[in-house]
Design a protein around this nucleic acid. Structure first.
Lengths: 182, 182
DNA sequence: TCGGCATCTGACCGATCGGTCAGGCATGCT
DNA sequence: AGCATGCCTGACCGATCGGTCAGATGCCGA
């Protein structure tokens, strides 16, 4: 059963996306993906150079947005503005790419230290730094970091709200969380 | 180099805890653990029946507390009380067992569906149900679920606050998040 | 009709995984 | 001294992983 290359390509991408989101990158084998698509493991590797290339293409767009967010944080005028940009930018990122950011975060520690993701190593540090900008407000710090870590996976697993509802709800939460707690 | 059994046992447990927290259960090999402890892979399997037994012992106490929380939620008088119990109980759990809950959550989907964890299958559903108790308050629902998913890993990875500071900060955040958003 | 290219398959490879096993070595009791 | 027991090792096993390869199959233009 032969399919046109672009369709197959997208089929594999979609199947891998579902599998990665549910079982993680390491927990998904090429065999699993092939079985979902309905072809052989070798066929998957005909359309993609290797397993990492599937992941790379799957997270290419959220990664681009993450990098752009990183630049905006770096260009902020002070820690307060950096924190605000980081919080809102991350919400935007998480809402727009729910599933991708889920396993992107799940595989974070090991994955971003090797090619082709090595050039992104500094980003988590910068994000954490931005979120922790106001170290005299521990609650805000906690809240922001909780949000940073939790949004993506949660949205993918439990919540089924349309983006039009989810985004303002999350933004309201972030703004509220960033207020100082007395 | 021979050590007394209880010490070795705890050494292995500690090394596994660090590795699991950083690279996940699936991403950690018995070889890694053995190398950290300074013994052979076979020695690890002399002190533990298999790899899953290490994980099981590592999460035994948080699991117990999770099960007790589950019972308290089930015994709540209504959805509002259930939500409150769930939120505060989960914070308590996450703060007390930061690192354990981190990889406990990371391996959640696949792991709780097979022995020796099968009897806990219903708990995530009950938790999610409790958190989503007030479905007419989407922001509160989002916030609670974000917290549910995010606390553990975040605390383990980014935050280095003493428990005495972290716990009240998180509780304040939860209470605030559970208030309706206009 | 025929040749060429894109798509795909089954068999195979080396590496690594979790787990097993027979035996070595130290310690401590008899 | 001799023996049993507890702790540990290196070698090994089958399974599975990501990845390769030669060749089969089907489609499409000349």
């Amino acid at each position: 059963m032969t399919r046109a290359a672009p369709e197959r390509h997208d089929d594999i991408l979609a199947a891998a996306g579902r599998r990665f989101a549910q079982s993680g990158y390491r927990g998904t084998s090429l065999q699993d993906i092939a079985a979902d698509v309905g072809c052989s493991k070798a066929a998957v590797l005909y359309h993609f150079a290797d397993k990492k290339a599937i992941l790379a293409e799957l997270v290419a767009r959220p990664i681009d947005q993450l990098r752009e967010l990183d630049e905006r944080i770096a260009a902020a005028s002070g820690p307060a503005e950096a924190q605000q940009i980081a919080a809102e930018g991350f919400v935007d990122l998480a809402v727009r790419f729910r599933r991708e950011t889920a396993f992107l975060r799940g595989e974070f520690p090991g994955l971003f230290q090797q090619p082709p993701f090595s050039h992104l190593q500094h980003i988590p540090d910068r994000l954490a730094q931005a979120f922790a900008g106001h170290s005299d407000r521990p609650a805000a710090r906690v809240a922001a970091l909780v949000i940073l870590a939790g949004i993506a996976e949660t949205c993918g697993e439990f919540i089924d709200l349309p983006e039009t509802e989810l985004r303002p709800a999350l933004l309201a939460l972030v703004r509220r969380a960033l207020e100082p707690v007395t």
